[in-house]
C-alpha cells in the first residue's frame, strides 16, 4: 500500500475548488476511463478522498475494482494558475453507508443540492509528481539531454 506524503502546496492545489481534477481508472476488462471529478480533496490523514456521485458510473465500478485488487488509479490536478500535478494511489476504503458516510452525504448535498452520494473513497498515495510544463521541461533537459532536435543546437553561421 502507499504511504507517500504530499506537500502543503499540493494539498492546497487539490483542495482548491478552482482546480480542475481528472481521474483515470481501468475497468475489469482493461478499458481506460478518464473523467473530471470535482469532488476530489485531501482528508485529515493526507489521503485522497473523493465523492462518487453516480452509483452506476464507470468510475465507481473501476475504483471498486482497484480497491478489490490493489490496483492504482491516477488523478491529475490543474490549478487555476496552470500548475499540474499527477497523483497515483490505491483505493483502500469505500464508505457507502453508516453515520460517517451520512455526514458526507449531507456535505455532498451542500455542494450540489440534488446530488445523491454513491460512495466516499479513500485513496492512499503511491506516487506524486508535478507535471507543469516548465518543471517537466527542466527535468527532461537534466535527465535526457540527448532528446533534442539538432537545429536547437545549431551554431551561428
Amino acid at each position: 500500500m502507499g504511504n507517500v506524503k504530499i506537500s502543503q502546496e499540493i494539498i492546497d492545489a487539490i483542495n482548491d475548488p478552482g482546480s480542475i481534477k481528472v481521474l483515470a481508472s481501468i475497468s475489469r476488462t482493461g478499458e481506460l476511463h478518464v473523467v473530471p471529478k470535482g469532488t476530489i480533496t485531501v482528508n485529515e490523514e493526507g489521503n485522497i478522498r473523493y465523492y462518487e456521485l453516480l452509483e452506476g458510473s464507470q468510475t465507481n465500478k473501476n475504483v471498486t475494482f482497484a480497491l478489490w485488487f490493489g490496483r492504482k488509479i491516477a488523478i491529475n490536478i490543474i490549478t487555476p494558475d496552470r500548475r499540474s500535478y499527477q497523483i497515483k494511489g490505491i483505493p483502500v476504503k469505500s464508505l457507502v453507508a453508516g453515520k460517517e458516510y451520512q455526514k458526507h452525504y449531507e456535505r455532498a448535498m451542500e455542494l450540489i443540492p440534488d446530488s445523491d452520494l454513491a460512495a466516499v473513497y479513500e485513496i492512499e498515495l503511491t506516487d506524486v509528481r508535478e507535471e507543469s510544463y516548465p518543471v517537466r521541461f527542466a527535468e527532461e533537459a537534466r535527465d535526457n539531454p540527448l532528446y533534442i532536435h539538432l537545429d536547437k543546437l545549431a551554431g551561428q553561421a
Binding site: 480497491l67 478489490w68 476504503k93 469505500s94 464508505l95 457507502v96 453507508a97 453508516g98 460512495a119
Partner: peptide, 8 residues
C-alpha cells in the same frame, strides 16, 4: 459488520 469496501 462492515468491510472496508463498504460491503456487509
Amino acid at each position: 459488520l462492515f468491510l472496508r469496501d463498504g460491503s456487509v
